[in-house]
Design a protein around this nucleic acid. Structure first.
Length: 578
RNA sequence: GCGCCUGUAGCUCAGGUGGACAGAGCAACGGAUUUCUAAUCCGUCGGCCGGAGGUUCGAGUCCUCCCAGGCGCACCA
């Protein structure tokens, strides 16, 4: 990997200048300049450490350039501007890169950066109380891509879905279905206060086996039967929808197992053993900002009795939090802590959670609670997946679960298709709000970047077919020097893929991948127009076919990271006369 | 009131831990196909990067304040 080569080369140069320290090397930033005349790679290190090294940046840069050990893939180092160091590939490297990419195949782009560190990415984790919405669709696209990115960057990554199958909401859900089931039998039974009204529950109630359901209606423990029935069916449906979307998880973790297995109780004991809990009518640790809120609630019925509090304030939360209510029932916080202890106990060094924007305030609380429990401060990393502003024909679609009026993941799959939906979600930075116009994504296919990239891939396939007809295989033949500027630009773009993947993984920014792929596709399309690929000269033809095949490999590897298909043919459907 | 996210071209958005002239797609306009898929390519038009200060060799990027939009501040999950 070029990044590694440059880094060790710069270490050598620093040492020669008598400036090598790990701090200075840590400040090394290697970037790929936008402007080709600035080289294939560039660094501002000389400017960054000039003050510290007490030398003028420009002179320092010249010294480092002189001491840089050329060879390998780098053929020249130039000093430019106020002290940039610009690196250029050797012609031999550029000539041989396509063959190397083909040789590496699926592995091109992978690195050992993570050194096998285990990371668990928890995402979607939608409540099993209704169909999944577009935010879940966005989270699913981002989360699954993040797992693949981390894996490609050398981490041992796994994806997990946390099923909230315990607590009031689920009981309410069961009771709501029980009511629908009773109504189906012609009995009088209302959906309970605060229960679920969605149409999907009618359908679900209709699927329940009638004899068992009848028995459960009369049985004392019957509510449990309905709850378990609806849970297993809702989870199965979530699994199916996500699978159809192309997203699968290493594990579906049931919250109920934490309660049943004693992990929740054990967590409370651990916290208490660490001196992190206390009994009180109100929080003892409170920030000034939160004090007003606490005062406002004083005297409320809920706060009158003595509860068990956790000292999250000590670890940066706004105030201490209740973990066990006065009546002995744990709050949601306790099983959440237990769940994350479980993640750590399974050997994961880091937990990355993708949450919706409505949970951002909870980040500080959970993070503090985990530290109170003894977990590493950097164990939990939360990425907020911002909301999706859904449009149809440019008009906002108001989403209301209660009114049953919302667009589901299933609708997206059916109306837009998994490839386009995922590509669109992944194009945007995860933590920024995004507009998603279903009409645009579906109807104006020509404007969809997903097709742009897929088309480049299919176009290569077409060219390779053409080459095969002429008896030319891209794998054969000697390395060939670049003969056209468009080729050089394309090779240069392909060479940066591993660095793009690495950067996307360590910064948890999947949107860098589609951005890169769009640029790569653009370089390919330009090359395609500028150069005839299969021509009279078999040596040149093979060389260009090899470049095509390498491009296809990079596009396929990138699309595969995104969970988007890479078709060998992409043809516009024939217009069907009305 | 406090906190989080956002504010860059007409629209949707990129702009690695500050760096070399602010980019892409769409929209608008004008071109390119006797040749490997025109779902393509080339060109033109379009920006006081929300506003005001500050930090420094250098700020779209960092700090402070203000403005605007979204979201959140439970012994609900």
């Amino acid at each position: 990997m070029i990044w590694t080569e440059l880094r060790s080369g710069m270490a050598t140069a620093l040492e020669a200048a008598g400036l090598l320290t790990s701090e200075r090397l840590a400040r090394l930033e290697l970037a790929i300049p936008r402007e080709p005349s600035h080289g294939d790679w560039t660094t501002n290190l000389a400017m960054a450490i000039a003050k510290d090294a007490k030398r003028p940046p420009r002179l320092l840069a010249e010294e480092l350039a002189k001491a840089y050990p050329l060879g390998g893939s780098i053929g020249a180092v130039e000093v430019a501007g106020p002290g940039f160091l610009n690196f250029r590939y050797t012609d031999a490297f550029v000539a041989s890169l396509p063959a190397r990419i083909l040789g590496e195949g699926e592995s091109f782009g992978r690195s050992e950066h993570g050194a096998g560190e285990a990371i668990l990415v928890e995402y979607v984790s939608a409540n099993p109380t209704g169909p999944m919405n577009v935010v879940s669709a966005r989270a699913a696209a981002v989360g699954s891509t993040l797992v693949r990115l981390l894996d490609a960057a050398g981490y041992a990554a796994a994806g997990e879905f946390y099923v909230n199958d315990a607590g009031n909401q689920v009981d309410l859900l069961g009771a709501s279905v029980a009511a629908r089931f009773a109504q189906r039998l012609g009995l009088e039974r209302e959906v309970p206060e605060g229960g679920y009204q969605g149409q999907y529950l009618h359908a679900l109630a209709a699927q329940l086996p009638e004899a068992d359901g009848r028995a459960a209606l009369d049985a004392p423990e019957g509510a449990k039967w309905f709850r378990d029935q609806v849970l297993s069916r809702m989870v199965a449906r979530q699994k199916q929808d996500l699978a159809d979307y192309g997203v699968t998880f290493e594990r579906w973790f049931l919250e109920s197992t934490l309660h049943q297995g004693g992990a929740v109780d054990e967590t409370l004991q651990t916290l208490t053993g660490r001196g992190m809990t206390y009994r009180s009518r109100g929080p003892l640790g409170v920030s000034e900002a939160a004090q007003g809120r606490v005062n406002a609630e004083e005297g409320a019925a809920a706060g009158a009795a003595e509860a068990t509090w956790l000292k999250t304030f000590e670890y940066g939360d706004d105030m201490d939090r209740v973990v066990v209510r006065a009546d002995g029932r744990p709050t949601y916080l306790l099983p959440d802590i237990a769940y994350h202890r479980d993640k750590r106990a399974r050997g994961f060094r880091r937990a990355i959670n993708l949450w919706g924007p409505d949970h951002h305030a909870y980040v500080a609380t959970l993070s503090a609670a985990l530290q109170a429990c003894g977990l590493e401060r950097d164990f939990l990393q939360v990425l907020i997946v911002q909301q999706v502003n859904l449009l149809r024909d440019g008009v906002e679609v108001k989403m209301s679960k209660r009114a049953g009026e919302f667009v589901t993941l299933r609708d997206l799959i059916d109306e837009v298709g998994p490839d386009c939906a995922k590509f669109f979600f992944l194009m945007r930075a995860t933590n920024s709000h995004l507009d998603f116009d279903m009409t645009l994504a579906r109807a104006q296919k020509d404007e969809n970047p997903a097709y742009y990239v897929q088309y480049a891939h299919a176009r290569v396939a077409s060219v390779l077919r053409k080459g095969a007809e002429a008896g030319l295989a891209p794998e054969a033949g000697e390395a060939h020097a670049v003969t056209h500027l468009a080729e050089a630009h394309l090779v240069r773009k392909l060479s940066t893929f591993p660095e793009i993947v690495r950067g996307a993984a360590i910064n948890r920014e999947p949107h860098r991948i589609p951005g890169y792929l769009i640029e790569t596709a653009a370089e390919f399309h330009r090359f395609y127009h500028a150069c005839q690929i299969v021509g009279e000269d078999p040596v040149l033809s093979r060389h260009r076919l090899r470049l095509c095949a390498a491009t296809q490999r990079v596009l396929r590897n990138g699309l595969s990271l995104m969970g988007v298909s890479a078709p060998d043919r992409l043809e516009r459907e024939a217009e069907i006369p009305a």
